[in-house]
Write a protein that binds this DNA or RNA. Structure first.
Lengths: 338, 338
DNA sequence: TAGGGTCAGTCAAACGATTGAACGACGCTA
DNA sequence: TAGCGTCGTTCAATCGTTTGACTGACCCTA
């Protein structure tokens, strides 16, 4: 009952030619010289038998898998959803399939993932997950092209694509400054996150061009979650005089920041303005609708794919994607009172 | 400079044995009889050379890819994020890698995806995307085991896993009834969505056990997006006397429903209670925090994998996952006024 | 001491596609 | 009519593993 799968040989037999011909027809080999009627017969046979090339055999022979891997921390984080979408579409455009894995699940440590991928299953690996030195070493030992996405690597051989997070922070802070804010605090991301550090740097830089000093108590760290944001905001309120504006390192924390402000009976934007990084769909539907900095996350994913495919593993790659960054002005920011 | 990749033969040579031995050691072949010191030599050689089995060769020989495919409409939808997470972890637990593709991108129609996957790249395919009859036929012609996830298939050969959406609707409506609501309307999902129909059915059933009639104007359809929810809610307000409670078919539409109610100056939950399906992380951070019905989305994904691997392609599979469904009572529901 | 039974391995044929090299037929030219 | 080039096609090695069949050494037992 199980119809054996159709191979090149079957097609060749039906078309009355050698399988080499069929292979070259399938792959549109430019060196192939063939009579039109022969080609016709071959195509017909392919059609009739419903032949589909076996990718395992092809991969084995060509040592190319036609697949790229992408490891992210968590599917539930919409930031990565955007990156995946961009990467997938770029991969497909180049005839590759994208395998996306998350590294946080019970069964899916990075290392286990690397093992499962084994050799010859992917042609390259993109990592958007935090990576331990051990893992990075294992990664290098695979002999695969790899690329860090949205974070810089820690080794001495650099291969990464990131966004201009400092610039994003500047856009946000400058927006607040233009509105007339002077007392601007920052809810930063976790120390371990590369993006968080760059956004904090951008905040400091933007403040530096003004004459407004930034003191240690103007910055509080959260862990990029709503709860973390809520706690960081509470800390800021406790420590200093009430700010008139907050720059939040990501939207998830901004959600918590809004919670804390609501509890403290501070109105947004009348009493405090809030602006955050990443224009996720969610931002528009918060109350009040959140002013954000839109970042080219899809482009980031796409660029990672292009760089991965377009460079040899030894090349140094250190690119900053700068396209299409802009401030999206919504309801959570306004001029300060008085 | 390019170090050739390490194969079984290299390991065998270093260990001074035949490659067959190495293969059986690697795969823990139970029929293998081997001296402890030989095994030791082999393992050492593997270690020293950093051998990793080539999965293309392995797939070719065994006609198993060790990979499962999952096609979803959109990575940005958190409902699918949950399904992916569950599926991935189940797949990994069974030694498989999960390839997740979205079918909405510019380059990624279902058909193109199926072509790219070719033969021998995945051992089975799970579809959470809406599927046209043409696509379903193509799917069947692949000779791969497949499974519809969270939607029923349209062919005569059934293979699907779904959730008990009618029951979810009942839980929601019963919650409202218990609070004392009588005038309960429903913002339903799009007609084409199987889940939407089942939730609407559940709503009707739950209302039927009471003596409260459900009229046509008590139901409005949206497209599962915030905007769709906003418009559907506006329609309900226009058409009938103001309801005291709304059951919304998903959280995305609930976001829009809240917007519309806010614009209409109706307070939630004082004037109107709102409850929606799916306890996504977002629900907790809306204002007011949304009462929801938690659905076992991860289990759904995991079960899909188990069924896919544990059934032959000809089997009929029609399973409803019923675990762990519960009402999550937050701030958006309360007894009606007066 | 012939024969049988482990034990510990080796041999070699697949799996299906790719690809450089070889080959026969034909037409041309000298 | 020998020689050569071109056209259209076939040949066969190869990619790295898996796995059933086979073998040689050794020990026991009759």
């Amino acid at each position: 009952m199980t119809t054996r799968r159709v191979t090149l040989v079957d097609v060749a037999r039906l078309a009355g030619v050698d399988k080499a011909i069929v292979s070259r027809v399938v792959n549109a080999d430019p060196s192939l010289v063939i009579r039109p009627d022969t080609r016709e017969r071959v195509l017909e046979a392919i059609q009739n038998l419903g032949y589909r090339p076996n990718s395992a055999a092809r991969s084995l022979r060509t040592a190319k898998a036609g697949t790229l891997g992408l490891v992210i921390p968590d599917f539930a984080n919409p930031v990565y959803a955007e990156i995946i979408t961009g990467a997938e579409s770029a991969a497909l455009a180049k005839g590759h399939v994208l395998v996306t894995g998350s590294s946080t699940g019970a069964h899916s440590s990075m290392e286990r993932y690397l093992d499962l991928l084994g050799q010859g299953r992917v042609d390259g690996l993109m990592l958007a997950s935090p990576t331990t030195p051990g893992e990075q070493q294992k990664l290098e030992s695979l002999g695969l092209p790899w690329m860090m996405v949205n974070r810089r690597d820690t080794g001495e051989h650099h291969r990464y694509v990131i966004l201009d997070d400092a610039q994003a922070a500047k856009l946000a802070v400058e927006h607040l400054l233009e509105l007339g804010h002077r007392k601007i605090v920052h809810v930063a991301g976790p120390f371990g996150a590369d993006t968080a550090r760059r956004r904090a740097t951008g905040y400091r830089q933007a403040m530096k061009v003004t004459d407004i000093p930034v003191r240690a108590e103007d910055i509080a760290r959260g862990d990029y979650t709503p709860r973390g944001g809520a706690e960081a905001m509470a800390e800021l309120l406790r420590k200093g005089p009430a700010p008139t504006a907050v720059f939040v390192a990501n939207v998830a924390m901004a959600v918590g920041v809004l919670d804390t402000l609501r509890r403290a009976r501070m109105r947004v934007p009348e009493d405090v303005s809030v602006v955050a990084v990443h224009d996720l769909p969610l931002a528009e539907h918060l109350v009040p609708a959140l002013t954000t900095v839109r970042m080219p996350l899809q482009e980031l994913g796409a660029r990672a794919v292009d760089l991965l495919l377009g460079s040899s593993p030894e090349d140094e790659v250190a690119e900053v994607v700068r396209t299409a960054m802009e401030l999206v002005y919504r309801e959570s920011t306004a001029p300060p009172k008085g």
